[in-house]
Every structure is written in C-alpha cells, then in structure tokens.
C-alpha cells in the first residue's frame, strides 16, 4: 500500500512546454485482473488527461500490455473501474463498441488484414463502423497514408510491404477512425533497427499534434523526447511514474534503478 501511495505522485506538467488539459479521458481506479489464479494486474490507478503522452515501460511480463489492452477491452478486468471518454467499461457490448470507436490501437505485429489492400485496410472501419461513404473514406485514408509517408503503396497488399511500412499503415489505419486516444502496444518491438526510426518519426509527429497517447515501448529516446509522463511497471503494479527528466535522472525505487541500468548504458 505504501508503494502505491508513493507511486501516486502526479507528474508535474512537462517543463512548462504546454499546459496540460485538466479534462480526464481515461480513468482507471483500483483495477485488478487475473488469468485464472495468476494476478496479472494489481490495484492499478491511472488518470490520463486530454493530450497527455504517456510512455509505459517495464520488464516483460510486468502487465504493461495487458493494462493498455484493458482500456479498449481486448482484455477484461475483474474488479475496479475503467472509464474512457466518460463511458465506463462494463459487459455492455454497446458501450465497448462506443469506446473502441474512439480509441485507436497499434499492435506489435501490425495485424494488417492480409487479404485487403493497404487502402482497403484503412477504409474498412470508417465505412463499416462510421458508415462513411466509400469516397470520403478513401479520401481520408489517402490523407493519413500521406501523413505516414506511403501514399504510393495504397494499392499494394500488406505482404508486399516492409515491416516499418506495415506499421506505418497500421498507424494510418487507426487514425482513419479519427480516434481521440491512441494506444501503442510495443509498436517497434517486431521491427528491424533501421525501420524503428521511420515508425518513431510518425509517432513523434502524432504526439506533436496533441494526440492523447499511451505507449508501451522500450524506446527510451522516444520517451525522453515526447512523453509527458513515464510509468514504470513491475509484477503487475505501477511502481513509479514521473516526468521523463526526473524519471531517468532521479529514479526513486530500487526496481526502477535496476531496470534503467539494464536498458540504458
């Protein structure tokens, strides 16, 4: 309990770059999750405000992916509350769909639909979920494909693209739904080193435009550059959270120090 109390320190705004909105968009309180007997997430409390960029790091198996997957209900939580954009996540399928419409997600393994072209990948949800006309959806898709700098690949299939290109398409695909929150689940972990850069650039652009982002990643340079807050998780708990400056230079907990010493040289 003392630990979580200490972890509850709310990060100060990021060196006065821009004042953070006080509008709460994600609120997780006293949330627990079990896989059978295994207690994956223990008493998670997290508040995200509009426009906030959060980087979540921690050793593998610490529950960071599971936590962000709870936000759009790819994983179910067993106790506690999760409120996203003012809608509480319950078993109500309608609410789940409402939340999923507002929350975009980018996966470690891209998960593009291999039987559809890049353009079709991007227009599918706007057409079927947002009920957009095909023309409008294609226009929006091309706009975002240009923003991730691959409009020329629109008519190819995912299998014909490199990993980095596929991940950028995945980001564009999520953006086509015009989401208010973006979740990134280790978006660069499955990429070759030279492709990580192109994906991170797109993510930095997005962050600079003010998108609310929760990002599980091991890219500490990205965390330093854009994060408002860095969260460190271990063994299903939020151990420490702080602004990147203090997080990297003055970690409070032994576990955090150990983790940072292992990934930063």
């Amino acid at each position: 309990m003392t630990e979580s109390a200490a972890a509850g320190v709310v990060a100060p705004p990021h060196e006065g770059q821009r004042p953070l909105s006080q509008e709460v968009v994600v609120e997780i309180s006293a949330m627990n999750k079990w896989y059978g007997d295994f207690h994956v997430l223990k008493n998670i409390n997290l508040t995200v405000t509009r426009g906030e960029r959060i980087v979540i790091c921690g050793p593998s198996g610490s529950g960071k992916s599971t936590m962000i997957r709870c936000i759009n209900r790819l994983e179910e939580h067993q106790s506690g509350r999760i409120v996203v954009e003012g809608i509480e996540l319950t078993n109500d399928l309608k609410r789940i769909d409402e939340i999923r419409r507002e929350v975009g997600m980018v996966f470690q393994h891209f998960n593009l639909f291999p039987h559809l072209t890049i353009l079709e990948n991007c227009t599918l949800a706007p057409i079927w979920v947002r009920r957009m006309s095909k023309r409008d959806a294609e226009q929006i898709a091309m706009k975002y494909l240009e923003r991730v700098r691959i409009p020329e690949q629109a008519n190819k299939y995912p299998g014909q693209l490199s990993g980095g290109q596929q991940q950028r398409v995945a980001i564009a695909r999520a953006l086509c739904m015009n989401p208010r929150i973006m979740l990134f689940d280790e978006p660069t972990s499955a990429l070759d080193p030279e492709m990580i850069k192109e994906v991170l650039e797109v993510m930095v652009d997005l962050a600079e435009e003010g998108m609310t982002m929760l990002c599980v990643t091991h890219e500490m340079s990205f965390a330093r550059q854009v994060a408002d807050r860095v969260i460190f998780m271990d063994a299903g708990q939020i151990v420490e959270q702080n602004d990147p400056e203090n997080f990297f230079n003055h970690p409070q907990h032994e576990r955090t120090k150990l983790f940072l010493s292992q990934i930063l040289h």
Partner: peptide, 29 residues
C-alpha cells in the same frame, strides 16, 4: 491469427462484421 480478431475488434467492428469482412475471407481461403 488471434491478432486479426483483435485488430478487427479494436477498430470497433461488431461480431458479424468481423467474421464477414476479416475472419471468414481468410479462413475460407
């Protein structure tokens, strides 16, 4: 792959949309 289901769900497709547009075309092939 499970990721296909998850990607479809994450973008807000309902069960039947997911099956018809994403899963069955790949499964039947």
């Amino acid at each position: 792959p499970k990721g296909q289901y998850e990607a479809a769900q994450a973008m807000g497709l309902g069960y039947w949309q997911m099956m018809r547009l994403i899963v069955l075309p790949q499964a039947l092939r």
